[in-house]
């Protein structure tokens, strides 16, 4: 079983990202649960979502305390909260950032990857410049980093899960897939 934790801010599409990822993973023939941190969400406030992936039907119904990997949709969260809390050793931390993975230093044995989802989202006019919607872009990076579904699966999931600008969202995901830094 693979467990992921997504960190974002209200309005960035973090929960929607977890749902689209779940959809892609199911298309790849796996079982999945995707759920938000059960709380009350506000725009701009830290938001957490979880994805649990397995080859068989999932009975586990508790929260995720020790994720295998992390996705950070907003790099400023790294300064305000301890994003690596509970993260397993060797875990991948995929960050939406224009910086090189080597510029991040976390306390622990983790592997940092980056993708400039903000720049990609703005270039495809997803959200506004002040408040870009980065979720589909970062998912392109996730698919590349974790090999949990194919890019085609993700494209189909975006078609199902995005209400507007479908082509732009697909293009953003593809661009992120190609521009992941620190991956294999």
């Amino acid at each position: 079983m693979l467990e992921l934790r997504l960190h974002g801010r209200g309005g960035q599409g973090t929960v929607v990202a977890s749902k689209i990822l779940a959809d892609a993973v199911v298309m790849a023939g796996k079982y999945v649960q995707a759920f938000p941190e059960y709380g009350v969400e506000r725009r701009g406030a830290p938001v957490v979502a979880f994805v649990r992936i397995d080859d068989k039907s999932i009975n586990l119904r508790s929260k995720i305390y020790n994720p295998d990997h992390l996705l950070v949709l907003d790099p400023t969260l790294i300064e305000s909260i301890n994003v690596t809390e509970g993260l397993k050793e060797q875990g991948i931390i995929l960050i939406n950032s224009e910086k090189d993975p080597s510029s991040f230093n976390f306390d622990g044995n983790f592997k940092v990857m980056t993708v400039d989802a903000t720049k990609i989202a703005i270039s495809h006019r997803l959200g506004s410049k002040a408040s870009p919607i980065v979720n589909t872009a970062i998912l392109g990076g996730v698919i590349r980093a974790l090999s949990i579904a194919s890019l085609d699966n993700l494209v189909e999931a975006i078609k199902n899960g995005v209400p507007v600008k479908v082509e732009e969202n697909i293009a953003a995901a593809k661009e992120a897939y190609e521009s992941l830094k620190g991956g294999n």
Binding site: A22, Y31, V32, Q33, F35, Y38
Partner: peptide
């Protein structure tokens, strides 16, 4: 169950 099912996406 609230959230554990109501807000959880699964196949």
């Amino acid at each position: 169950d609230a959230f554990v099912l109501s807000h959880t996406y699964e196949p």
